[in-house]
Design a protein around this nucleic acid. Sequence first.
DNA 1: TGCCCGATTAACT
DNA 2: GTTAATCGGGCAA
Length: 191
Amino acid sequence: MPRLIRRAFFSRSVHEVAPDLIGTTLLFAGVGGRIVEVEAYHHTDPAAHSFRGETPRNAVMFGPPGYAYVYRSYGIHWCLNFVCEPKGSASAVLIRALEPTADLGIMRRRRRLSETRLLCSGPGRLCQALAITRAQNSLALDEPPFALFARTEPVDIVAGPRIGITKAAALPWRYGLKGSRFLSKPFAPAT
DNA sequence: TGCCCGATTAACT
DNA sequence: GTTAATCGGGCAA
């Protein structure tokens, strides 16, 4: 049986936690899969929601690590983040893609899509498949309905520039599972 | 109070 | 490659 990841796991630099999340398994109410792609957002980063200080929307980022920060993107989609680092540093990891492993049937129904590769390959898609909305904002990640399981085997991790942002876009703070078919976009080949 | 724009996706050409 | 859909934060007035 895989080991359950506790919230102390997140009490480290977002740049350590982000690659460590690759290959772990995220379940929400028993539905989910293996994390294959994440991005790190540090509070000193202009692209981070916390960069301009605390507001009602981003308040969870300023709280203790190990909690979910959920926000609406482009007025349509939901995006799931894990708060990291000591309380107050306001850094988080955006969960960008999963390899579906648990309860594909309910995810296909929610997404109205049969193709497994696209079920959770993107931050908005993943939230639709797991039925995550603002209602899950500020929930603890090591208590039901959330569950996060440690990897059971070593993984190869690749890093590259983040996606879909205009500020500080060159920083290589996107991490992925090497060779995964379930990435939202491929990583540029290593040079 | 109003206006602009974004950590996106899917349906177009 | 381009664009609409659609909401709330941040900033100007």
